[in-house]
Simulated assay, not measured.
Amino acid sequence: MKSFLLHGFFVWACEFDKNRIFATENRVTMATKQSKKAHENELLENPEVIAEQIGRGEAFLKKNSKILAGVLAAAVILIGGILFFQINTANQNEKAQEEMFQAVYFYEQDSIDFALNGDGINKGLLSIVEDYPRTDAANLANFYIGSIYLSEKKFAEALEHLEDFSSDDYLVQAKAYSLIGDANLELANIDAAISSYTKAARTNENKYTTPKYLAKLAVAQEESGKIADAIATYTEIEEKYYESFEYSAARKHKARLEGLAAK
């Protein structure tokens, strides 16, 4: 019984202390709020305090007026420049695409000279790149020009234009990587070719184009003397893309390289 009473007293004491502490905290909080409110009321009701605050603001503005004006002017110029650049680029791109239409038609008809240089009336792809830099049309023109130069065995020129091309379309970008690999392989830049073919094979992997890029990669790896890597690449074609056109050739070349490695 005594133990129970002591326990009850202890609980009551704790509750009493807790209530006393909370009450004290509440009084302090209320006092702080009242003080803050009184200070705010003083600012609102006392004209001298308001005038002092305004005076400080005016003094700051007078002292830093030139700096603030310069910052404001710079901001206006920057924003205006960005808007002008965006609008101008959009207009240039629209105009370039219209002028590029005939050049693309010539390209599709294998009229390579007209596609590159124009027909005397319509601009060629080279003019599109030169006259409308930084536009989507010029970017795409670089892809067409690079593929034309590659077919003409102008590998250095092809590489220059293909490396200036980029696309959000994974299939097109993978094709560009592959063409860059072709140009580098022809120029005996074997390591660069391996890097480009690897990018092509790993971009949007699929059963249609990936085995083609892997086959090119294996050729470059063998050319570089990396026989084990070439065998691994042919093995990937064999295991993942057994329905592809490259499957049979991959098995044959893999067996050949394994025979060479065994010697």
Rank of each mutant, 00 (worst) to 15 (best):
A59R: 11
K175P: 01
A262R: 15
A218W: 07
Y197Q: 03
D113P: 11
R251L: 14
I79G: 11
E157L: 09
L5I: 02
A158H: 03
G118W: 01
E258M: 09
Y213I: 05
R256G: 03
L126Q: 11
V49K: 14
Q86S: 13
A261K: 12
A200M: 03
S167F: 14
V49R: 14
A230G: 03
I148F: 12
Q97Y: 15
N19K: 15
I237A: 05
L150M: 12
Y208H: 06
Y241N: 08
S224A: 15
D191F: 00
Q34N: 07
N206A: 01
F84V: 15
E236C: 07
E48C: 08
T198C: 02
F106Y: 15
K33F: 05
E15G: 14
A73G: 06
A174T: 08
E258N: 05
R27P: 00
A215C: 01
E186I: 00
L159K: 11
I237Y: 07
Y107N: 14
A188T: 08
A232R: 10
E99D: 03
G8M: 06
I67M: 15
L214C: 05
K66W: 04
L185E: 03
E239L: 12
Y242F: 10
W12R: 15
V49N: 10
E52C: 05
F10I: 15
N117Q: 12
L187E: 04
K123I: 03
K63V: 08
S248M: 13
S195I: 07
A156Q: 13
E52M: 13
L140F: 10
I67K: 14
L217Y: 11
L214I: 00
I180E: 04
F143H: 10
T203N: 06
V104P: 06
L83C: 11
L61G: 11
A228M: 06
R202W: 00
Q102V: 10
I77M: 03
E48F: 02
M30A: 10
S244Q: 06
Y144T: 00
G181S: 02
A183V: 06
T233Q: 07
V71L: 15
L126F: 13
M30R: 09
I121Q: 11
L125K: 13
Y107F: 14
Y213R: 01
Y247M: 01
T235V: 02
Y144R: 11
S244F: 02
G55M: 03
T203L: 02
K199S: 13
L179P: 00
E42A: 15
L257V: 02
E223Y: 08
K62C: 12
A193W: 01
R251W: 10
D136H: 12
F155G: 02
M30D: 06
I67N: 09
G120M: 06
L5W: 02
